[in-house]
Design a protein around this nucleic acid. Structure first.
Length: 410
RNA sequence: GGAGAGAUGGCCGAGUGGACGAAGGCGCUCCCCUGCUAAGGGAGUAUAGGGUUUAUCCCCUAUCGAGGGUUCGAAUCCCUCUCUCUCCGCCA
């Protein structure tokens, strides 16, 4: 969420920032709500102070054996006024919270304006692409080798599930190790193992709830538990409610987990093959940094993800998402897109975002600054990389499984 | 799953209805003392929101696991939930 203080203090600037991503902020409504909030809060707190004062008096009078009946009569009246004020304040505050929770983040100044994917801007390109009309896709290659079985996945569960066998299953496993090893030994990330089931508070913290419940798999039962859609949720929520020492920053975590997505909105897209599955593996990079470091951290983190593609000799390009294509919580996002010969185009294999204080404010993730005061952290994350899509890219670009295994061993 | 005991500040720990945002200790910061070290003396040391302010200061409100209730008044009494610990059962 955005800073409520900023919303009050500099409403035009916030509105201008949100307008860049196509969000029309009703500034009159905000001002009206804020005016009511202030009046009600002041009134409520004054009544509370009055109640506290008189309660103390009652204690004193009783101790001295005095008569408290007159004060009690006044309290009766005070109490009902207070109840009315408190109820009104609760309502306005809830309205304000609901409103601000729904606001997206403000894009950084250098994020290009735009309405859709088409307006994203390529920032760099790496490798040499194979661009020919008849390139076989990973489904053809995998099934021909007898190592990729979509029918089996459909039988066991349903559409968008896959069974891998033999050498392909092994490459898939080695890919995870390959990525983890590079990030831990070369890029300085601490490896984590985390729950794959999380509660509602965690999903609220990173912003999946309340807006994107439809994309999640919810478990039966009273607990309100969900399968994680990405390691970002459990990993970033480690910071929820914490105040870190500045000396412990930056925190850099890498975590391999399965990811479960219902993707209800994507029915009909990428129905063939392993590109879009209900269950896939991902190695996720997460950083928590001081605010003044987050811009540089996003560049570094994106670079860490790109290293994996370079080592695997997979051609890719990196694009900066335009204002209209960014996720709601992000202030700036780079997508890394790998070349898929069968589609003759680049497809997303990693998304690296700087959330600035957007997530940190939701989850109250802070550090002690130079003044010793708690200050919100900046959080970032990015895939490093999506394992299933990496496997697809390896198959389609290199085809020879022995070569692929050699890359992973080298 | 069953039985019991707990949850208080950075940490330990006191507090069963009124001067408690919270004793005492430890830790930490600053000052004094000290040739150095050790010991000692003094002051300070939660978070959030709001008012005021250039800022500091100051004032108010809320917070003792979470939420609700009783009461003029709740860390303290009642209810629900969560988590931790001990024992039993079960299990990898």
């Amino acid at each position: 969420m955005l800073d409520p203080k900023q919303l009050r203090a500099d409403l035009p600037a916030v509105a201008a920032g949100l307008a860049r991503r196509g969000y029309a902020l009703d500034t009159d409504a905000v001002t009206a709500l804020e005016t009511r909030r202030k009046a009600l809060q002041t009134e409520t707190e004054q009544l509370q102070a009055e109640r506290n004062r008189r309660s103390k008096d009652i204690g004193l009078v009783k101790k001295q054996g005095g008569d408290i009946a007159p004060v009690m009569a006044e309290m009766e009246q005070l109490k009902s006024r207070l109840q009315t004020a408190e109820a009104a304040l609760d309502q306005v505050q809830a309205e304000f919270d609901e409103f601000t929770a729904a606001l997206p983040n403000i894009p950084q100044a250098d994020v290009p304006n735009g309405a859709s994917e088409a307006d994203n801007v390529e920032v760099r390109r790496w490798g040499t692409v194979v661009d020919q009309a008849d390139a076989p896709d990973h489904v053809t290659l995998g099934e021909a080798a007898g190592l990729m079985d979509f029918a089996a996945g459909a039988k066991l569960t349903g559409a968008r599930f896959t069974v891998l066998k033999g050498q392909l299953a092994r490459i898939h496993r080695k890919l995870v190790q390959f990525m983890l090893n590079i990030h831990t030994t070369e890029h300085g990330y601490e490896e984590l193992y985390v729950p794959y089931i999380v509660n509602r508070d965690s999903l609220r913290g990173t912003g999946q709830l309340p807006k994107f419940e439809a994309d999640l798999f919810k478990l039966e039962g009273d607990e309100g538990w969900y399968l994680i859609p990405t390691a970002e949720v459990p990993v970033t929520n480690l910071l929820r409610g914490e105040i870190l020492d500045a000396a412990d920053l930056p925190r850099k975590w890498v975590c391999h987990t399965p990811c479960f997505r219902s993707e209800a909105g994507s029915a009909g897209r990428d129905t063939r093959g392993m590109i879009r599955q209900h269950q896939f593996e991902k190695v996720e990079l997460v950083q928590a940094v001081r605010p003044d470091e987050s811009t540089a951290a996003l560049e570094a983190l994106t670079g860490h993800a790109e290293v994996i593609l370079q080592r695997l000799q997979l051609p890719y390009r990196t694009v900066v998402l335009c204002t209209g294509d960014m996720g709601a919580g992000s202030a700036k996002t780079y997508d890394i897109e790998v070349w898929l010969p069968s589609q003759r185009r680049y497809r997303e294999i990693s998304s690296c975002s700087n959330f600035e204080s957007y997530q940190a404010r939701r989850m109250q993730a802070r550090f002690r600054n130079a003044l010793g005061k708690p200050e919100l952290l900046h959080t970032l994350n990015g895939s490093g990389l999506a394992v299933g899509r990496t496997l697809v890219a390896l198959l389609e670009n290199h085809r020879d499984l022995e070569n692929i295994e050699a890359l992973l061993s080298g």
